[in-house]
């Protein structure tokens, strides 16, 4: 739910999405660490470990709202989303940035298309990740101090796999956004 088109940001949209993706990545790492603690406590995680895991799942649900809303909006608005970025770049006060935005227009458009795809894949991986985490929490809390079932162990595996997939896509998004920033700042040649 970040704001695009903010006049005070040097590269509206680009910088802000990079920050949102970075924060989301940290949250996913954190959730995966909590998942690892459950795995390490197998076959019978203690009440405290489950309680910590439960808190982390809630935290993930809250902290991921922004990135999930972003991914959903990019999907819903499609190219119009990035047209807004392009228009804002064309209105930049810094003439050099405006010039580079125009010069590297095809590269930027390709980068925006890549970001759109990665955002879609990140959103698609996030849903099963969160669902597995939430379901695992429910299973663990409904049967405290019991041996983990095969179903629960399978949920741990599914959550881990999907969490890793989310991280991979977030890294793609960040890399593309960093590349676009460098291109616009004149710090790097575009990858053709």
């Amino acid at each position: 739910m970040g704001l695009c088109g903010c006049a005070t940001t040097k590269l509206p949209g680009v910088t802000e999405y990079n920050k949102v993706a970075g924060e989301a990545s940290k949250e996913v790492h954190r959730a995966l660490a909590a998942l690892d603690k459950i795995k390490a406590a197998t076959p019978t995680p203690s009440k405290r470990v489950v309680s910590n895991f439960s808190d982390e799942v809630t935290r993930l649900q809250v902290q991921s709202v922004t990135i999930r809303a972003r991914a959903q909006t990019i999907q819903a608005r499609g190219d119009a989303y990035f047209r807004d970025w392009s228009e804002n770049l064309a209105l930049q006060k810094d003439a050099a940035v405006r010039e580079r935005a125009e010069h590297y227009r095809p590269e930027l458009e390709r980068t925006f298309a890549d970001i759109k795809s990665a955002s879609s894949r990140a959103g698609a991986a996030f849903r099963p990740f969160l669902e597995a985490m939430v379901r695992l929490r429910a299973e663990l809390e409904s049967k405290p101090n019991q041996r983990m079932s095969l179903f629960e162990i399978d949920l741990v595996r599914a959550a881990r796999e999907n969490g890793q997939a989310v991280l991979k896509e977030l890294a793609f998004i960040q890399s593309d956004l960093t590349g676009a920033s460098a291109m616009l700042a004149g710090k790097a040649a575009p990858a053709l």
Binding site: M1, G2, L3, C4, G5, G13, V65, T66, R68, A69, R70, Q72, T73, A76, R77, A80, Y81, D84
Partner: peptide, 11 residues
């Protein structure tokens, strides 16, 4: 505000 309004809706 099309992008941010759409994000608020998604939120």
């Amino acid at each position: 505000g099309a992008n941010s309004l759409a994000e608020l809706d998604s939120g």
